[in-house]
């Protein structure tokens, strides 16, 4: 069974009141600490910067002080759009590399015997046991002598390294659920090893590929530490840009605007991806 099927509720089964009760605390938490800040951010993007950083008051001289200045600023200079575009390209490249590197490993892990599988998964998540900044600094030592430091290559290498486990884990979870009888059936009916992969394993692992890609692509867009440590001045991403507005330039409205635009762009992309990969409806 694919993830899509597992998640579908049988027709005619309404959620019971108890389910709502259980879902209440996490829902409340998300409302307060996620939806709230997002709304604040959204509001902040329509304000003017304060004289000493922060935000200008919402009401000035008895009038609402709302402005589209920050948005205007973003669209006035090509450089911002370019950074956006470059960030998306870097995120896409990182995702593809993670997929290409992670898929064979996930497949090998999923097909190994149970005891070994647990050990291998432990090894995949082991890097999380040490601090992520320290691990990124470590790459400076590795890449320095190779003359790759402060280059786009270094940024990609670092991003792939940091995000690889987020690709491997969902793929493993998906792949180990595959019924080996399906591959035997395909082989029995005449499919060679490559055809079996393309026609059976790959399509059945699409939910895992989608989950892993989302877990890599979206965080990479907001990442600022890796480009800052490993990249050159021209390698900054949206994450760096946003961080700069809040911490260095003290232009909160512009930072908020960048965040809002990033969120909108990501939502659009996720929407398109979900639509393209929607579960098949049969014709009945």
């Amino acid at each position: 069974m694919t993830d899509d099927q597992a998640n579908r509720r049988p027709a005619g089964m309404a959620p019971r009141p108890g389910q709502w009760l259980v879902a209440l605390p996490p829902t409340a938490f998300l409302l307060v600490f996620f939806a709230g800040p997002v709304l604040l951010l959204f509001a902040a993007s329509f304000l003017a910067p304060g004289d000493f950083g922060g935000l200008a008051p919402v009401r000035q001289e008895g009038r609402w002080a709302l402005t589209l200045d920050a948005y205007g600023f973003f669209f006035s200079d090509w450089i911002y759009a370019e950074i956006f575009l470059r960030s998306f390209v870097v995120a896409a490249l990182t995702t593809v590399l993670c997929l290409v590197l992670g898929y064979p490993l996930a497949l090998a892990i999923a097909q190994s015997p149970r005891r070994r599988r647990e050990l291998l998964i432990l090894l995949v998540v082991l890097p999380f046991a040490s601090n992520f900044l320290i691990r990124t600094y470590a790459w400076i030592i590795v890449l320095g002598p190779m003359d790759l430091l402060y280059s786009p290559v270094a940024v990609i290498v670092g991003l792939v390294y940091v995000h690889l486990p987020f690709m491997i884990l969902p793929l493993c979870i998906n792949l180990e659920k595959h019924d080996p009888a399906l591959l035997e059936a395909a082989q029995d009916l005449g499919a060679g090893v490559w055809t079996r992969f393309v026609r059976i394993t790959l399509p059945l692992s699409m939910p895992g590929i989608r989950a892993g890609s989302a877990l890599v692509f979206i965080p990479v867009l907001g990442m600022f530490a890796v480009p800052e440590l490993l990249g050159g001045t021209r390698d900054i991403l949206i994450g760096n840009l946003i961080k700069e507005q809040f911490l260095d330039n003290r232009d909160w409205p512009l930072g908020s605007t960048l965040s809002v635009l990033l969120t909108v762009a990501v939502l659009l992309l996720v929407g398109i991806a979900a639509w393209a990969g929607r579960p098949r409806e049969s014709i009945s």
């Binding site: 099927q5 035997e184 059936a185 399509p203 059945l204």
Partner: peptide, 9 residues
């Protein structure tokens, strides 16, 4: 096959 092993996708 006993489990039929139909390709679910």
């Amino acid at each position: 096959f006993q489990s039929y092993a139909l390709f679910p996708h």
